[in-house]
Each structure stands twice: as C-alpha cells, then as structure tokens.
Write a protein that binds this DNA or RNA. Structure first.
Lengths: 126, 126
DNA sequence: TCCAGTGTATTATTCGATCTAATACACTAG
DNA sequence: CTAGTGTATTAGATCGAATAATACACTGGA
C-alpha cells in the first residue's frame, strides 16, 4: 500500500497526478519529513505504470524540494523548503492570476473567492 | 491591432493562451459586451497562427459563453454569463484545490494567500 | 443577383510530449 | 557478494496539437 492516493484523470499526464498526490499527502500529514518514500519499482508496481514514468515523478518532486535522494539507499520526504515571502508569492503568481481572472470572468465576488478558499483550506485540516 | 494581448509560453497550447487572453481582456474592460470580435482569418494573420488553431480558440470561447456567433456575419462579445453561486464554486473547485495544496506545501499561510489574491484582484481594476 | 467576408467542416500531414519497453550502470546496506 | 536503491540510455507506440489546403453555407451590401 502506498502512503498516498493518486487519482488519474484523462488529459492529465500520470506523472503530474503523482506529483500533486504527493504534495497533497504532505499537506495532509500522511507523509511526514523523514518518512521513506516508495521506490521507483514499488511505485510502478502499485500504480501499474512504467518505472520510467514513476522516475519522472520522483525527479520532479526532488527538483521541487519535497524529496531527498540517498544514492543507493532510497528516497525520503524532505523538511518543508524555506522560502522568503517574496519567493513564495512569486512562485504562485501564475496560478493566482489565472484563478482571479477566471473568477472575475464568471462574476464571482472577491468575498466569495475568499470564502471558497478558506473552506478548502480548512478541509485539509488544522 | 487586436483588442487583446496574447503572451505565448512554451508548453502551453497557443489556443489556450488565446482563450485566457480574451477572458482577461473582458475582465479588464478592454473587450465589452457587444464589441465585435476579430474574425478567424484576422486572428490567424495578426498572431501568425493557422486559421484552424484560432478557430479552436473561438469555439472554446463560444462554448464558455464569452462569445456569440452570428452565422455569416461575425462574432461578438457576450453579456456576462449568469451562474448560480453553487455553479460558480463548482466550476472553480479544481483550480482552488490545486492552489491551496500548492500554497500549504510551500508554507504559505492562509492570510498570505488572501493578501496575494486581493492584490491581484485590485490590479485588474475597480 | 453577385460577391466578398463571415464561421465551420473535412482531410491529411508534421511535430512534440508522453508513456512504454528493455536494458545497463553506479551506488549502498547487509 | 548480493539485493535493492536511483539513474541513464535507446527505441518504439501513441496521442494531442498545430499546420496546410480546401470546401461549404450563411449574410450583408454593391
């Protein structure tokens, strides 16, 4: 059994789904810093995917700073990366702009958007 | 000259960039309801794209309710589509979840996220 | 009526990303 | 030494997207 759940949707590359599922699992504390991360071969077996596809997901998560690779040993979950507020805002700029434009185009108010975000935030715990 | 600006990025299909650019232009009031929308052939000429690619963008915008087609005449910008609050929230569910997970994974607080969204919101006017 | 300008449909081809497949290699713990 | 790691390489299959060249139905105006 894997320490996270992947939901595959048509139109979205499987390796991207894995990346998102792992990020969500970390947020939900299903994966904690220091936890061992399943091997590429284990992943490919559990998810019925090619090892290369899983390797691509692991590489992306490593580049994003969520996983740390111990050569020859395995992969573990990292401490949360430390970024300055400026870096954090910049990293989310595009996603925020897309969401805001989409929201205003649909006639959603700023209050409604804040409310919807707060709800999702709380649904992930604490 | 087109009534909106498209920013092409590698990795994103050009027709999706057009769709987003038009949505943003409507939000910015650069495109108002009733305004004539450039023809497919005009678009392809100005953007140096194949007519079929522009046609795909027009079709997507029509399906989204932003444009209205007058057969044989041309295309005009629609009135803002009316959706119930429930429909609006549902339409943004995935984008919001992705943003919230990404934010929490990066260690951003709910307050910081609200602040960043408010800033982007105001940068689009009124 | 005729014609130019609309949106739209069709068919075919090219291109790139993705996923799969089968190996191979360097590393580390036991 | 061996089994289990991550990683790299090469190749092929598949799919979506973009391009290309036409063709058609519709509408407004000359």
């Amino acid at each position: 059994m894997l320490p996270f759940t992947v939901h595959f949707r048509s139109g979205v590359p499987p390796y991207e789904e894995i990346v998102f599922a792992v990020k969500k699992a970390v947020v939900l504390r299903q994966l904690k810093p220091g936890d061992p991360f399943p091997s590429v071969r284990k992943l490919s077996q559990e998810l019925s995917l090619n090892p290369n596809t899983c390797q691509k997901a692991v590489a992306a998560l490593t580049a994003a700073g969520l996983l740390e690779v111990r050569p020859g040993v395995g992969t573990v979950v990292c401490e949360r990366p430390v970024l300055s507020p400026k870096e954090r805002s910049a990293a989310l700029r595009e996603a925020i702009e897309a969401l805001v434009v989409e929201s205003r185009q649909m006639g959603i108010t700023l209050s409604e958007l804040h409310e919807a975000i707060s709800e999702h935030w709380k649904s992930l715990g604490e």
